[in-house]
Design a protein around this nucleic acid. Structure first.
Lengths: 208, 208
DNA sequence: CACGTTATGATACATCGGTATCATAAACCG
DNA sequence: CGGTTTATGATACCGATGTATCATAACGTG
């Protein structure tokens, strides 16, 4: 058997190129040719690995989703063994907000895809419905556990709070992407929210 | 002087056609020809009134912004003379959320433009920065006033709460547009938030 | 009515972008 | 080495789209 190359790797490289380009020029400006150029590869090869533009776009979205899960998992792994609820939620916020430039790029492209999904039905289902739902369940479970441990006020609804935190992160994140607010200000807003959420877990923050 | 026609009216009609089409097919699918067809007008006339595609897109965005302000003003006008804080905030939420189909269409197109603005610098400034900023100031003032009137707990920061409410509306709204959540569920989340915000304004809601 | 504005129609043209084809080179494994 | 896979290059084609041009029709105001 001759020349063996990791197909998934090549596909990842090309998908990465698409994301880089889309982050810079906009997803609407993505063409087969521009992606090839960005990847430093011939147009022909992009056709070779993705056959279609539709499949290219689809593949890049899946790639983006995987990357996102990886980063979230990695951030959780970086936490200490028994992290405080605050630490976990800070992690979530840091991941959900477009802070550094790579994160900005990711969120910009992700949002662009979300807009496409609003009119392209076959693009939507998995990433933009199931994804957030899973995250919401995950976060709900974390909050429920924290509540059982007395780290979260018992009068809060974990499900509702998870939803609220995610939606807030999304909303504030968008305002950063659009240039209304800088990342620092965004973090302050989320901190304000967390401060309130964890206001009197028993060990009491600040004065009252 | 011969045949006089209201230019602004024609421009509005064409801009409306663009919005309708974009809501249905996606902003990326908008072409001079598709807008003309949607407006029931010749391609030539679209060129006549907007000269350029860039100017057409720009004009439609301004149109969208005006429409938005009109609707918000109209909703405020429909409120009673001395409305309760809750009523005002409910109005805001109702306007911010894509509930009925026309509202869905508006928010869908607006979000599409927001994504364009992320990479097209000359498209952004006015609507997506100044607009939200103005809304935020407006809402902050309402909250500050309500606080002075004892309708809002005094330990809340009006500015921060305004920001939070808007961001939350945005985030939840997006989740509706993307099909993750229905409008009813979205309203429940915002109601939860308002319930908490107005929890003990002096005349005491529920038990504690 | 006449004139200029408003509107249409019919194209024409260049460019871009997705797709397809074919020949060929380069690399790698057995 | 030889053959299969991987990759490039050179194009070609077609449809879509923005833009431009020109003639002409409809129309209403003075």
């Amino acid at each position: 058997m001759p020349r063996t190359v990791d197909h998934d790797l090549r596909r990842s490289q090309i998908a990465d190129a698409l994301v880089r380009f889309a982050a810079r020029e906009g997803l609407h400006a993505v063409t087969m040719r521009s992606v090839a150029a960005e990847a430093g590869v011939s147009l022909r090869l992009v056709q070779y690995y993705f056959h279609d533009k539709a499949q290219l776009m689809h593949g890049a979205l899946e790639h983006l989703e995987r990357r996102s899960h990886e980063r979230w998992a990695a951030r959780l792994a970086r936490l200490p063994a028994r992290p405080s609820l605050r630490a976990v939620l800070e992690s979530f916020v840091a991941e959900a907000l477009p802070t550094d430039e790579p994160s900005r790029a990711f969120h910009r492209v992700w949002t662009s895809y979300a807009v496409l999904a609003m009119t392209d039905p076959d693009l939507a289902a998995q990433p933009f419905v199931e994804g957030p739902n899973r995250l919401e369940r995950q976060l709900t479970e974390i909050l429920r556990q924290a509540q059982a441990d007395g780290e979260l006020p018992p009068d809060l609804d974990p499900q509702a709070e998870a939803t609220r935190l995610i939606a807030l992160g999304h909303g504030v994140g968008t305002s950063v992407l659009v240039g209304q607010r800088d990342a620092e200000s965004a973090q302050r807003i989320l901190s304000y929210h967390l401060d309130w959420l964890l206001r009197r877990p028993g060990s009491g923050h600040r004065s009252d």
